Simulated assay, not measured.
Amino acid sequence: MEDVLRPIYQERASQSRTLGILMVERWSDYSPETDLFDVVLFVIVREGEETVFIKHYAFGEKSASLYVVDERQVKEWVLLGSNRKVINWLLNGKILFERNEYIEQLRQRLLQFPEEERKVKMGIEFARLVRRYIEGRSFFEKDQWLDAYNHVLHALHHLARLFIIENGFYPEVTVWNQVKQIEPQIYKLYAELVGSEEPLDKRLQLLFLASDFFIHSKLKQGASHLMHVLEKKETSWSMAELLNEKELTVYGVDLEILLEFLVEKHMLSVQKIATKGQGIFHRHYVLEKNNKEKC
């Protein structure tokens, strides 16, 4: 298959902005890694004309998908975990071409998983966990058990990824295989939710209690990155300032709910700043004094 595709990837390899080319082959009829294509060519470029360019090919009875992706987009996917199959491609794909050992160095960085990157990814997963947990509780209290189940299931996925990241690994597509080895307790919660014969409302009730415990136990680790950013400024932060802070853009729509959650947990304080309206104040955020020393 590599020989058939050689003219396609060699053309890309000859271009100076191409940093690396990987090949990933489909290994089963239902292989999700390649989106059901027989083979994927993944090309990483510097300053691409488009962030992501995709082209499909047919040869004989087989199919191929060509991805040409700007390296900034690759880094964003890796950081946010928004395209997890790419992690598998980067770690397990066959290297067809690399400039100055670019792919090998990228793999080493993924395997070593620097502490600062871990903190950011833990913050992202923690914020997503908090949102799913709160939304799930809301549905549960309204007796909307199937919707609550959906949110709790997603919350468990974020909790599992949180534990995996804390242990120094990137979460893979097969996250439960990873977490079974790393944190059996979380795997057991997942198995109880999806496999128990208990009534659904009873399962959910137990899961919320367990989630309460784990969220509380991971509060400082999950909030570490956000707290570190807030510590950089001695005065309080307005919401507009937080939204414009480059380091916090990774939280997206989950930033507000994370802030309010940390206020409830007394890790952040709210400062009221007077407005022109009588009795109406701007809300600004600042670290609690006892938390500043710990950041």
Rank of each mutant, 00 (worst) to 15 (best):
K119S: 08
V120G: 00
P32F: 08
L36H: 11
A148I: 02
E104M: 08
K75C: 05
G48V: 06
S28E: 07
V130W: 13
A148P: 05
S28V: 04
L91I: 11
L129Y: 09
L129M: 14
Q108C: 06
I103N: 03
K94M: 12
Y102Q: 01
P114N: 09
L90M: 13
K121W: 13
F113P: 08
L80R: 14
R132P: 00
G136Q: 10
Y57Q: 05
R46L: 07
I103R: 00
R46C: 06
E101D: 14
V45N: 00
L96Y: 10
L129N: 07
L41M: 11
E115K: 15
R131I: 03
A148G: 12
Q112K: 13
V52C: 09
E104C: 10
A148R: 03
E33M: 10
V40S: 01
M122L: 15
E98V: 05
R84H: 01
D35R: 07
E71L: 08
A64E: 00
Q108K: 08
V86N: 02
E98K: 11
K62L: 12
D29F: 03
A58N: 12
V69W: 02
Q105H: 08
I54K: 15
L96H: 10
L91P: 06
S82F: 01
K85R: 14
R99W: 03
F113T: 04
D29K: 10
L110H: 10
R118T: 05
R132Y: 15
L91K: 09
E125A: 11
P32D: 01
G123Y: 00
G81M: 11
A127W: 01
D29T: 09
K85N: 12
N88H: 11
S138I: 04
S63C: 02
T51G: 11
F37C: 00
E125D: 12
E117V: 04
Y57T: 12
R128Q: 13
L41I: 15
Q112R: 13
V130Q: 01
F126V: 04
S138R: 13
D147W: 11
N100M: 07
F53N: 09
L129E: 04
L36V: 04
E61S: 14
K75V: 12
